[in-house]
Design a protein around this nucleic acid. Structure first.
Length: 545
RNA sequence: GGCGGAGUAGCUCAGUGGUAGAGCAGGGGACUCAUAAGCCCUUGGUCGGUGGUUCGAAUCCGCCCUCCGCUACCA
């Protein structure tokens, strides 16, 4: 344990205002792959994901449905849990901002920021939609009758002002610029970093840390006179207002690491190695959040990876547009691993990508059914047919074209994966698969088998060598793809006659980089199992969910 | 408006001075271990427009057109 690297990664917490769409879970699947990869490497890994449950909007939506906010978010969280299970997500903790330890973490951060002189009372003014709260001017529609909220065009907007606690973001401009300069790749991809750097250089304004009239939120713990707002019976003084959701939500990342209840755990897990987020919340994570941490005197996360969006005919996939895919429908059609694969292969992890049922099905058939699934199937089938199932050893790597090629494939795969270019990592694997399929046709094992049967010893040796190489190629690809295809990997190993020593979440097995050496199990004799199609080809296009 | 990015085969993209590439989709062929999969061959592009620099430009420079991102209180 002391020698293991530790790796702590998080996703953004999802806004629990609706059932999750595939676009929401895309980020979580991507992070899940990284978590599984680190677990299989042997890293002491912690993967945090969860839900953001406070806000005026959520209280409003709950009320529309005649429900208490807590009951409403409980329902939403159950839907998130179902969908994440269907997609094989393996969090070490699913955090909810309504969790009691999160409230303690938020209060402690606020206490520290206040002690540091970074919270003060001020007045916030802006256009207020009764359904959604304050709205950015840039989000509003302006016409002859004035400004309107795009989601509620019939509702009259009000110009409101209220007393809020403000966080002194302006104070941290220089410190943030310095941090960006000293950690040039702490926000990636590069163009996302540059956008935020430009934003910071343009000047920073203080922002609200509390809301006066919102009731569904974490109680703000400080009264206007600066005294702690907790009463003798443990309850919080309602006059103090609630913590503004922005301020509250970001803190989940340290709550999930043990702050402030478990200092030992916190020292172990924090700072996070990686925050995976969407481009729409870049500013919150790379400007506000680091400033908050500086104020609370907590180290900053090491890296933020900003992914793009799933697009449908050029438009963002979203619930409000109604063009989203239901994760359960995708899983029903493609299976858990098929759904994970097409999402992460078809969508570039560093930018927006157009997706469709057609593109998903095409990708599934081309890569999983025709190329990889079929390679395993034909390899196992030929080994059974020509060698009575006895599994031949691969040649040593420098006597085997596939063995030689694997070295570069693995290097590039790991480089892409750890550089968070998940789609490119998968492309490397599939290119190797394509090479293996070409080897089958070039060597024609069926011809070798016929010659061997007729007594040709040279052909017999070659048959064994070729099939040994192919079995090894299947083992390596199946294992390397395990973080992406967690359910398929054990099935591949079973068909090849190997064990799979990892727990369902990827923990507990041998270090994957050792296992990914060409010929790692060359000395182990064995028999292959029966061929079973891993990814049945889809001939009919499934209906959109 | 300001700053930044992009426009290359039907689709998604690679390609930063030297006779246009990949994958998928489409067409043809030989084979048969295999999920009618795989393999081989192949159709297809005035590289957004225009004017320059150069022996030579998708690649460098100017201008124009189109699209996208950032430009703070929904998260």
């Amino acid at each position: 344990m002391p020698d293991r690297h530790r790796y702590y990664l998080t996703t953004a917490i999802a806004y629990a205002n609706n059932r999750p769409g595939l676009h929401t879970l895309y980020e979580v699947v991507g992070a899940d792959v990284l978590a599984r990869w680190h677990r299989m490497k042997g890293d002491d890994t912690r993967f945090l994901t969860g839900t953001d449950e406070y806000s005026v909007n959520i209280a409003m939506t709950a009320a529309e449905q005649g429900k208490e906010p807590r009951a409403f978010v409980d329902e939403m969280v159950a839907l998130f849990g179902d969908a994440e299970d269907a997609l094989g997500i393996s969090p070490d903790r699913f955090i909810r901002t309504t969790d009691p330890d999160h409230e303690r973490a938020v209060h402690e951060v606020i206490r520290r920021c206040y002690a540091n002189g970074d919270l003060y009372l001020g007045t916030y003014e802006g256009w207020y939609c009764p359904n959604e709260g304050f709205r950015a001017r840039s989000d509003l529609i302006e016409d002859a009758s004035g400004f309107h909220c795009p989601n509620h065009p019939g509702v009259e907007l009000q110009w409101l002002s209220e007393t809020n606690w403000f966080f002194r973001l302006s104070k941290y401009q220089a410190a943030l610029e310095r941090h960006f300069a000293e950690h040039p790749d702490w926000v990636q991809p590069e163009f996302r970093k540059n956008e935020m750097l430009g934003f910071i250089r343009g000047g920073l304004e203080d922002f609200s840390a509390s809301r006066q009239n919102a009731t569904w939120g974490i109680p703000f713990p400080i009264l206007p006179d600066g005294t702690w707002a907790q009463r003798e019976d443990g309850s919080w003084h309602p006059g103090a207002g609630t913590v503004y959701v922005w301020f509250d939500a970001l803190i989940n990342y340290i709550t999930g690491a043990g702050f402030p209840d478990d200092p030992k755990a916190f020292a172990h897990w924090w700072p996070a190695d990686l925050h995976v987020i969407g481009k729409d919340i870049n500013r919150l994570h790379t400007v506000m959040w680091p400033a908050m941490l500086m104020s609370a005197q907590i180290p900053l996360p090491r890296k933020v990876w900003v992914h793009g969006w799933l697009l449908v005919q050029g438009e963002r996939m979203s619930k409000s547009r109604g063009n989203f895919l239901d994760p359960h429908a995708v899983v029903a059609a493609l299976g858990t691993d098929g759904a994970r694969y097409v999402m992460l292969r078809e969508v570039a992890f560093d930018r927006d990508t157009d997706v469709s049922w057609e593109s998903f099905v095409r990708r599934y058939n081309a890569d999983l059914a025709n190329d990889f699934g079929n390679l395993v199937n034909r390899t196992v089938s030929m080994t059974n047919r020509y060698l009575d199932g006895r599994r031949p050893a691969p040649r040593v790597h420098d006597e085997s074209p596939l063995g030689e090629g694997w070295h570069d494939t693995l290097n590039r795969f790991v480089e892409r994966l750890e550089g968070h270019l998940l789609h490119d990592a998968l492309a490397e694997l599939m290119e190797f698969v394509s090479g293996a399929n070409k080897v089958v046709d070039a060597e024609q094992p069926w011809v070798l088998a016929k010659a061997a049967k007729a007594g040709d010893r040279e052909a017999e040796a070659r048959l064994e060598a070729v099939l040994g190489d192919l079995v090894e190629a299947c083992r390596l690809v199946g294992l390397a793809a395990a973080p992406f295809l967690p359910n398929t990997a054990p099935r591949v190993m079973l068909q090849l006659g190997f064990g799979f020593g990892y727990a369902p979440d990827g923990n507990g097995g041998p270090a994957i980089l050792d296992e990914l050496r060409w010929g790692a199990h060359a000395a182990t004799a064995g028999h292959v199992g029966q061929p079973e199609p891993l990814f049945p080809r889809l001939d009919i296009e499934p209906p959109p969910g």
